[in-house]
Design a protein around this nucleic acid. Structure first.
Lengths: 222, 222
DNA sequence: TCATCGAGTTATGTATACATTAATGTTTTT
DNA sequence: AAAAACATTAATGTATACATAACTCGATGA
């Protein structure tokens, strides 16, 4: 993390904090302290404080009066709430995408599917990150294709928020995409087909089912 | 605005800036400058800068690299996008509310309806603000009753964002709630009834229709 | 023993001085 | 006269010193 080129320290702090959280450097319930982060990132409190403020405003951290910024503690109820919203908002996104997608957009999605098909299911951390990146591109890609920046914003937020859980319950994540060469992959294919055929209703329904499936896979044992 | 009790300056700055925007003190496309705001609010740049950061992170302002924070310029397309999202997310909220509302919650909503009924339609600015406050309580109240903080967050955001337009196109706003003693008021009543009867589907549909009606009232002449 | 008061600690909250940088305008060069 | 180089400016970006408030924990009293 050290000696990275830092042009804009606020942006650097923001990205670094996200990486620290995603890298399990902190655990849910932990407090991120301005002084501590500033020290370990080798910059002053000012940009760190700004970055934390952003993360709180975006709903990724919770601020306690004079205690600091806490990483939200996952709970089954909260997970249900995030995935419930994600299901509907991404359904909306897929339907909108089916209405707006151009031929070029379709090609982009098909390219992603091709990449997803070729991921080696070795189970190591690298493959997992690769899969995550592709999956993110797929979901946020469709959000962007909705051509509605509000839909995109909420999709982005709920996607990330739901991945708190996916990262937290690590084992299930691995399971999800290794079993049967991915039921999730097949669902992705069907969604792209519906978008390609400009079938709004089907695209929306398939996306909702897909997100609900992900949720059920994760939490069927909890 | 001066000599107001200021316990937390960041919060004070945040609220003040919102009031300045809503009070048409600035116009869309204007840049909010840290130094300028700090001077007029009689505090240092630090809390102002923090507040502006929040508003940008929340998507209420747009940040240009070295130019400042801009009030987004309304466009018919953007309005359509906000209201489209608001329609669906508030529909979701109403349906969830119908699932979760207690007797006490219903009483709260009915109390709001009573207040709404008694607003004098004098057309002056005070009455307009009163109506706005009640309407806000109604919509955000139902969002809260969804018992889902993500739904609540998105409702709150899209509600405020949509009101950029309602405030901007001032005339239509007045029209909306004076005509026929408010078709909107009658819709509110029906929504509460559906929630009271735990009729999720009806509550959702009525809310979607209500939001769409608001949109159409506003933009039928644009 | 237990409650309560209070000093100390530790974190955020705030002001201010200074650094940086993108945009603008002005001069110089061809 | 046009373009390039340079200086100016006006805003944000950053570091730091200090203020403030909540929490801790021990001392003191009933």
């Amino acid at each position: 993390m050290k000696n990275t080129p830092k042009k804009n320290l606020e942006e650097f702090a923001y990205q670094s904090i996200i990486k620290l959280i995603l890298g399990n450097y902190f655990r849910p319930g932990d407090f991120l302290l301005e002084t501590e982060l500033a020290k370990s990132l080798e910059l002053s409190r000012t940009p760190v404080r700004h970055a934390l403020g952003q993360l709180v405003a975006e709903g990724f951290l919770e601020k306690k009066k004079k205690k600091g910024c806490m990483i939200p503690v996952p709970s089954p109820e909260d997970a249900r709430n995030v995935f419930y919203v994600r299901e509907h908002i991404e359904g909306l996104a897929a339907a909108s995408a089916a209405r707006h997608a151009t031929d070029k957009d379709i090609l982009y999605l098909q390219d992603l599917l091709e990449k997803e098909r070729n991921v080696k299911h070795s189970g190591n951390k690298d493959a997992k990150m690769t899969y995550f990146t592709i999956n993110e591109s797929f979901h946020l890609g469709i959000a962007i294709l909705s051509r509605n920046k509000y839909i995109e914003q909420y999709c982005r937020h709920s996607f990330w928020r739901s991945h708190t859980y996916i990262f937290f319950f690590d084992k299930d994540y691995t399971n999800q995409f290794t079993q049967g060469h991915g039921a999730g992959y097949k669902q992705h294919i069907e969604i792209v087909k519906a978008i390609e055929n400009s079938n709004e209703e089907k695209a929306g329904n398939l996306m909702r089912q897909h997100v609900r499936y992900t949720y059920e896979q994760l939490f069927q044992r909890i």
